[in-house]
Computed example of a mutant assay.
Amino acid sequence: MTSSTVTSSTIAKAAKPLLEGLDGLVREPFSRRGFVMTGLVTGFTAATTVVQGQTISTDATGLEAGEVKIPTSDGMMPGYRAMPSGAGPFPVILVIEEIFGVHEYIKDTCRRLAKLGYCAVAPELFARQGDLTKMTDVQQIVREVIAKKPDAEMLSDLDATVAWAAASSKGNIQKLGVTGFCRGGRGVWLYCAHNPALKAGVAWYGPLGGNRSDIQPKTAADVVGELKAPVLGLYGAADTGIPVADVEKQRDAAKAAGKTVEIVIFPDTPHGFHADYRPSYRKAAADDGWARMLAWFKTYGVV
């Protein structure tokens, strides 16, 4: 079964036995605009500085890796999937993008996970809001794309990705994890408060506060008491956008609510320290965080 032949009805039928009891899944209809992006960013994003000499490049030898189409209630959402060649099934890790789209850095992250035995899938969650392949201004992306993505739609898109992975990608969603970077780190917190089937989540410098709106009604701090899966939060002490006090408050609130949350704050480390294509990359913290992420997934059954 190829991704081009998988339909929403096929997914619903194939994934039903695995998805029974997931009362956190979003199924309500949305007012859709249609998909603006039908494919992914080629290469690296044009919206930020790229330091080519330090970027990590993971080959696809021994993998099935490439762009896919993920059926949703209103059409096909582009995404990237990497997994080992072979029969499977493989533990599934959702990879939630930064604000810059599913570009080469996110794709490479999926391949790194696939080399370790995972089926890693990164859906292009902003495909309805704007064409990230053509945007070069960060503020435009924030204003015209990020602020216009309803959280309920994001959660529904992630649910659709889980179902697709189970039905068409040899994915074992009984061993389901999620990780994400920057805005995607916020998505990790929200998705771990949403989907009771998750085994674990790892949020890389995900914003904890921020503005609330009708379509984005809760911050990551607001949902800490609703977490349904253990969360590892990886943060930098020199992150100018996420104060250490807010990170510590998140940790303390989780503890008070009886939730399994571990927070790691790397000294003298800026925001975006895992993004190896950007000037913010800090290899020591990135490597340490990656090792902690893998250990977290192993501890909580995403292996």
Rank of each mutant, 00 (worst) to 15 (best):
T219Y: 02
T2I: 09
R33E: 12
T5R: 13
M37P: 08
L155Q: 13
R282L: 12
V162K: 08
K134Y: 00
V102Y: 08
S168W: 00
S31R: 13
T7Y: 02
T2W: 00
A114P: 06
V142W: 05
Y80A: 10
S31T: 15
E64Q: 14
L125A: 11
G39M: 01
Y300Q: 02
E67H: 02
G79W: 09
S4K: 13
V303C: 09
R212E: 10
L176M: 10
D137F: 05
G301N: 11
L232A: 09
L63W: 09
A254W: 07
K170V: 00
D74T: 14
D214E: 15
P78A: 09
C119I: 03
G301T: 08
T42N: 15
M76C: 00
Q140V: 12
L158P: 07
D288E: 14
V6N: 03
G272C: 11
G21S: 08
A65T: 06
R282D: 09
V41Q: 10
T240L: 12
P207L: 02
I106P: 03
G177V: 04
T61G: 12
L94Q: 07
M135G: 04
E28S: 12
L63E: 06
L176R: 08
L232P: 09
P243Q: 08
V244N: 06
D214K: 14
R186W: 02
G24Y: 04
T109Y: 13
